[in-house]
């Protein structure tokens, strides 16, 4: 029986502990996919906000309603997180934060900034 390296199976994933760098990375992907899916929503808002004064006010009211505020919160949170995780990526392209320790520190900072941003955006939108 050959015992070499093999691909990780999805079913084995819970057995692995994802380090902070991995969590920051997978959230970067998830937020990116979310943003991609929300493109038509944002275009739709932009479209209606530019039609006329009345439509603009309707869009403002619409964005103020509870359900839509939640969506706006998700979009802005994903945008914030994706941006700061992306900036970390650009810094890594320039050879910063690539060590095991420096990488973990940078990821922790992204995580903390991310959480703070998501809360701040939530307070701003929902209060």
């Amino acid at each position: 029986m050959l015992k070499g390296p093999r691909n990780t199976r999805i079913i084995d994933l819970p057995k692995y502990r994802l380090p902070i760098t991995g969590i920051v990375s997978i959230l970067h992907r998830i937020s990116g996919v979310l943003l991609f899916l929300f493109i038509p929503f944002v275009l739709w808002l932009l479209h209606h906000s530019l039609i006329s004064q009345q439509e603009f006010l309707l869009v403002k009211d619409f964005m103020g309603s509870f359900t839509i505020s939640i969506f706006i919160w998700i979009v802005l949170s994903a945008l914030w997180y994706h941006t700061i995780a992306g900036i970390k990526h650009l810094l890594m392209d320039m050879d910063y934060f690539e060590g095991k320790r420096s990488g973990a520190i940078a990821s922790t900072i992204v995580m903390l900034l991310g959480i703070a941003g998501v809360i701040a955006i939530g307070v701003w939108i929902l209060c």
């Binding site: 992907r29 990116g32 996919v33 943003l35 991609f36 493109i39």
Partner: peptide, 13 residues
């Protein structure tokens, strides 16, 4: 930019 950026991103995912 958004189109090209998400093309590369979604393709990778």
């Amino acid at each position: 930019s958004l189109m090209l950026h998400s093309w590369v991103g979604v393709w990778t995912v």
